[in-house]
Design a protein around this nucleic acid. Structure first.
Length: 507
DNA sequence: CCGACTCTACCCAGATTG
DNA sequence: GGCGCAATCTGGGTAGAG
């Protein structure tokens, strides 16, 4: 029987926004980075009809669907919905492997809720109903004997459907399809295979393992050959521990000033260490990533003698790596990562011992050098410190990161997409992000439709109301305050959501 | 002593995924 | 001409230890 279930929520971010904002239902909705360099994260099905899809540059989306609603992602809101969904999956089986906020595998065999195809299908349909009832959103389900087939099946089921592939029928299901549906076959590998005359899955199965290994390498070739035959025994794994932590920003305008670049690298290092510490880790390898004006990307890394979670150490290392990078022409993205993670508490003492040792060695070296050269030693270090400390030269042109308050004609310089956008919003005073929830003393709950030139436009409605109307305020209107997202379901028949304060507003 | 060899660790780019 | 962010994996290259 099919023992693996794959759930994929339909157009998740966009659907969540539509559920939260009645006036957007049935309309094209595009969620993504609104800055000059943003891309589409999710397009609603209405927007997809205009040809808009994820990863598309925002500018292109605006040309295709000028009348769509454009919203920044609200990850904390999506996460709360995701948790409800994952909770439902947990009732099916203890073995649940989340792939992202909107996607997960479930091992039904470990859950004992199904013992044949009919009961598996029933469990899948029951799940879809529960998800709709508790979140107001639809998800699609694939059921099969392996992860790969289950995932392809849920894709087939979209939107709002269920597809079950009977074990034993995998090869006929896969055979005629494009190689691109197989996991690990993206644009590059797909093109590679096409040049070798292989476009369908059955082409791969016929080519044989040796041929594929020769074409795309040892590991890829072998696994692809197995996949092409519908054979995939990867287990559902509940929790895997992180192997690296990274932070990166694309700037609204390319950075040229070395001092500014250096300052940004240090900020990223601090943010990266912050997240590293939150996760209770320390790490040994520091990685600097630079994307230049022409999109050429390079990484430089340095491995320390022991793991660290010291911001100063990571800043120093990242700064050192930067010195070896040519940035003439400008930089569009910077990133800092820490890998080689160790459990902090376990490695702590070792790390400190290592650090002391290294310090002592460096001191000894410096001393020897000083003696050899007389009084001149240490000048280099001083110079580096001076550059590190020098202030960030705020007026130096580009607005990036959280400095993006002064929006000109276009919306300001926030990082184009990602968790950082939300946090940046918190730091900038009275920055009304499109799509975010607000509450007005008189008119009640609503959401920011847009803002600019000292004004903010709010649509007053909530998940359970009819489409509401729009009013405009000054950005500093004291009656208007940011608010938490309201529950999508929880009124009407069914379970009354206990926390339901604030739905009996307006008069 | 030198060269060939294996192992391991590290470095970096590129591809893929959601 | 336009192309985000985070994480993972692989393959090829180099360097040092034995």
């Amino acid at each position: 029987m099919p023992t693996i279930l794959h759930l994929d929520m339909d157009a998740f971010f966009a659907a969540a926004e539509q559920a939260s904002k009645p006036s957007l239902r049935g309309k094209p909705v595009i969620v993504g980075g609104l800055g000059p360099r943003g891309v589409v994260a999710t397009a609603s099905y209405e927007a997809r009809r205009f040809g808009v899809h994820s990863a598309m540059p925002m500018g292109q989306a605006r040309r295709l669907a000028p009348n769509a609603a454009y919203l920044v992602p609200r990850f904390t809101f999506y996460r709360s919905i995701s948790e409800q969904v994952m909770e439902l999956l947990g009732r099916l089986s203890p073995l649940v492997e989340p792939l992202s906020l909107d996607e997960a595998f479930v091992d039904l065999e470990a859950g004992e809720v199904a013992d044949d195809s009919a009961s598996a299908r029933a469990a899948g349909e029951r799940l879809r109903i529960q998800i709709l009832a508790t979140t107001g959103l639809t998800g699609s389900v694939g059921l099969a004997g392996s992860k790969m087939i289950a995932k392809i099946a849920s894709e087939e089921a979209k939107p709002d459907g269920l597809v079950l592939i009977e074990p034993g029928t995998e090869r006929e299901f896969l055979g005629p399809r494009s190689v691109r549906i197989l996991p690990g076959v993206g644009p590059a590998t797909g093109e590679h295979l096409r040049r070798a005359g292989m476009t369908t899955v059955s082409d791969l199965a016929e080519a044989g393992e040796d041929e594929l290994v020769r074409l795309i390498g040892r590991a890829h070739g072998a696994s692809l050959y197995r996949m092409a035959q519908g054979y995939d025994d990867r287990p559902v794994v509940a929790e895997r521990d992180a192997k690296s932590v990274s932070v990166e920003d694309t700037f609204a305008v390319d950075l040229h000033d070395r001092v500014r670049i250096r300052a940004e690298v240090e900020r990223l290092a601090d943010r990266c260490v912050g997240r590293l510490r939150e996760s209770g880790h320390s790490g040994r390898t520091i990685v600097l990533k630079v994307r230049r004006y022409d999109f050429s990307t390079l990484t430089r890394s340095e491995t320390l003698r022991g793991p660290t979670d010291d911001p100063g150490v990571v800043r120093e290392a990242a700064g050192r790596l930067l010195e070896a990078v040519d940035t003439t022409g400008g930089v569009r993205l910077l990133g800092v990562a820490v890998s080689g993670l160790a459990d902090y508490t376990q490695e702590d003492l070792f790390a400190q011992a290592e650090a002391r040792e290294a310090e002592a060695e460096a001191a000894a070296r410096a001393e020897a050098l000083a003696e050899a050269r007389g009084a001149g030693a240490g000048a280099e270090d001083e110079e580096r410190d001076a550059r590190g400390e020098s202030s960030g030269a705020p007026g130096s042109g580009a607005v990036g990161g959280d400095a993006g308050g002064a929006s000109g004609g276009v919306s300001g310089g926030f990082p184009s997409l990602g968790g950082a956008a939300e946090e940046a919003a918190g730091k900038v005073e009275r920055e009304w992000m499109p799509g975010h929830d607000v509450r007005h003393a008189e008119y009640g709950p609503g959401w920011v439709q847009g803002s600019g030139v000292g004004r903010v436009t709010v649509r007053f409605e909530d998940p359970g109301s009819a489409p509401g109307r729009v009013r405009t305020f000054g950005v500093d209107d004291p009656d208007l305050i940011p608010a938490e997202p309201l529950p999508l379901v929880g009124r009407g028949p069914g379970v009354a959501q206990g926390t339901g304060q604030g739905t009996e507003e307006a008069g």
